[in-house]
């Protein structure tokens, strides 16, 4: 177990290093000179040279890269061209908002997705099953922004139950989280149903029943724990999509999170901010995969023991 986690940690470091390299290269091939963007259009050449020197942009690329990494590990991602605020501070503030939105959506999706999937599997072939399966097909194909706008119109404008923009009250998170979560409720319930159907036909489920266990124990203890393995895989890979989806949702609902930050910094060509955001998102993505892999090991002893121990 320990060896497995160490191995995954080492892999994660390699990936993070790759991420930093790719981010750096991307920022250097973006068209437009950042110094010219920062200064007045009619800046004097000597001012341009001075700022370029101050920003370290006249050093060789390799040196720039190592300085970038050295600063990044100390959580120094530079300052915004425009607000002059340290990128890390801005990102941390905005990240908090995104985390609140994404985790609410994620929690709803896991809770509803798994319970609906289990119920559908147990009532296979029933009208309820068709409803869930049909609903899931619909939910997966519906684009996030379309769902978001629909929710805004129905619950925000018509019924006026929840605010449609900003984050002034906790209620502000309801519609965005729903818009973001629906897709994952759908995909998680679908995978849960399939996985559950496969697991309940396994021999060990028959063994559990042959012991005289109540159906509830058979399902929740013997079946669900096995069925969770593909669900975790999905939930893990969807975490990245969830972040992407939250960018769109934040944009539609005018929520000041990472997503809005990224779109804003692209529009304003705020390179340090954009670079920081990309790096931040990539790190979160990699870390969430690490967490997923480690949680496998906790659920599935075959993984836990097959890597040393």
């Amino acid at each position: 177990m320990g060896a497995y986690i160490l191995k995954r940690l080492a892999q994660t470091f390699v990936v993070l290093w790759g991420v930093s390299l790719v981010t750096f290269i991307l920022m250097n091939v973006v068209p437009g000179d950042p110094v010219l963007l920062m200064l007045e259009r009619r800046a004097r050449p000597e001012d341009v040279a001075r700022v370029r020197h101050e920003m370290g942009l006249d050093k060789p690329r390799a040196v720039q890269y190592f300085e970038f990494v050295a600063k990044a590990v100390r959580l120094d991602l530079g300052r915004s061209y425009f607000t002059k605020e340290p990128v890390t501070t801005a990102l941390t503030r905005r990240f908090g908002v995104t985390v609140r939105l994404a985790s609410l959506a994620y929690a709803i999706a896991l809770l509803l997705g798994i319970s609906m999937g289990v119920a559908a599997a147990l009532k296979r072939g029933s009208a309820f099953d068709s409803l869930i399966t049909g609903g899931a097909a619909l939910g997966i194909s519906a684009p996030v922004f379309w769902v978001a706008i629909l929710l805004q119109i129905v619950f925000g404008l018509r019924l006026a139950w929840f605010p449609i923009s900003g984050i002034r009250s906790p209620g502000s998170f309801v519609l965005p989280a729903a818009a973001l979560g629906i897709r994952y409720i759908a995909s998680i319930s679908r995978v849960t149903r399939t996985s559950m159907l496969e697991v309940i036909s396994q021999d060990y489920i028959r063994t559990a029943r042959a012991k005289g266990l109540a159906e509830k124990t058979v399902i929740l203890k013997h079946a669900l724990k096995n069925a969770l393995i593909p669900i975790i895989t999905l939930a893990g890979t969807e975490l990245g999509n969830l972040l992407a989806g939250s960018m769109l949702t934040e944009w539609v609902f005018a929520i000041p999170g990472m997503g809005k930050q990224m779109v804003d910094s692209i529009l304003m060509r705020d390179l340090p901010m954009l670079q920081g955001t990309v790096l931040y998102v990539a790190v979160i993505f990699v870390m969430s995969n690490l967490v997923v892999d480690i949680s496998y090991a906790f659920i599935d002893p075959r993984i836990r023991y097959s890597h040393g121990d």
């Binding site: 021999d203 028959r206 063994t207 042959a210 724990k225 599935d300």
Partner: peptide, 24 residues
């Protein structure tokens, strides 16, 4: 019937490789 199963009447299956729960 659940009170009988595994208590008064018990059963052993053909496939020992798949008849035990892998995660318990």
């Amino acid at each position: 019937m659940r009170g009988i199963r595994g208590n008064k009447i018990a059963m052993i299956f053909q496939e020992p490789m798949t008849s035990l729960n892998p995660v318990l």
